[in-house]
């Protein structure tokens, strides 16, 4: 069950240019979160930046009763959010959405993240301790590289790419996945990031027969399945439905997602 909550901000820290990590004290979210789920945050009170902003849960401290979100400042709403200080209140609804499937039979897993899509994958990796975890993270340039230490600590192998080669491999993060895929023999792939990346990972999954879950993004309204704006095509080309990222997702099996051009 999700709730409307008013919680206290513990800290806000700028991790990289325009990318912020916010820790929020919330017994309820920390007890009810699972990897893949998100919170829908009202960034300021009143009618400015009217809609809530959906932000995935990046880390949970069950003992301390807190959780982290990481977000990029993209507009007015996230700008307001980044200006919050320790002790401020934050109005949020959560936890929302479905979750990544965690199956103990999967011994070798890969996570593929692009840009600000990497954050829910960190939480997933933490919940998968004990299996062989390979992380593939792609960024635009070294300026945007964040949380490498944290990902390193939760991965048996970590590979990084940037579009301009300023950090790690120069090129697409999916090249790195393809490079390793035969040798590593993954049981499952989890991906979150820009649509072209998800589309490519989905093709790799189809070619190799390795099951893959993707976490989708779409412009969202309510976050609770009422407004029906965050539509995504689910099914096969001859028989599909517009499902909704907030309620039916954000996580889907890649072979059921139809990526429109």
């Amino acid at each position: 069950m999700s709730r409307i909550l008013t919680e206290k901000v513990v800290s806000v820290k700028e991790l990289a240019k325009n990318i912020y990590k916010m820790t929020v004290q919330s017994e309820y979210i920390s007890m009810n979160a699972v990897p893949g789920r998100f919170v829908n945050v009202k960034c300021c009170c009143g009618i400015d930046a009217l809609l809530r902003r959906p932000i995935s849960i990046c880390n949970v401290d069950k003992d301390g009763g807190s959780f982290d979100i990481v977000f990029q400042v993209k507009g007015k709403g996230t700008e307001y959010l980044s200006q919050k200080k320790a002790g401020d209140e934050v109005d949020l609804i959560g936890p929302l959405g479905n979750s990544f499937e965690i199956n103990k039979d999967n011994k070798r897993i890969a996570v593929v993240g692009g840009g600000i899509g990497i954050f829910p994958l960190l939480y997933l990796l933490k919940e998968l301790k004990g299996v062989d975890r390979s992380s593939y993270l792609g960024f635009r340039s070294s300026d945007y590289v964040v949380l490498l230490e944290e990902f390193g600590a939760e991965s048996e192998a970590l590979s990084v790419s940037t579009d301009d080669g300023s950090r790690g491999y120069k090129g697409l993060v999916t090249d790195l996945l393809e490079r390793d895929i035969e040798e590593k023999g993954f049981d499952i792939i989890y991906a979150c990031g820009p649509t072209p990346m998800l589309k490519k990972v989905s093709e790799i999954s189809k070619k190799t027969g390795i099951p893959c879950q993707v976490s989708l993004e779409q412009r969202m309204g309510c976050g609770i399945g009422a407004c029906l704006v965050c539509a995504c095509k689910i099914g096969n080309p001859d028989n599909w439905d517009y499902k909704h990222v907030c309620k039916d997702g954000p996580v889907f099996w890649s072979d059921e997602v139809i990526f429109d051009d």
């Binding site: 009618i47 809609l51 779409q218 704006v229």
Partner: peptide, 23 residues
Amino acid sequence: RQGNRPPRIAETPAGILNSVGLQ
């Protein structure tokens, strides 16, 4: 009805535009 293609929402000053299309 499936409704319109996404994006179906845009935030505007003190409001929103939607184009769900009766899904």
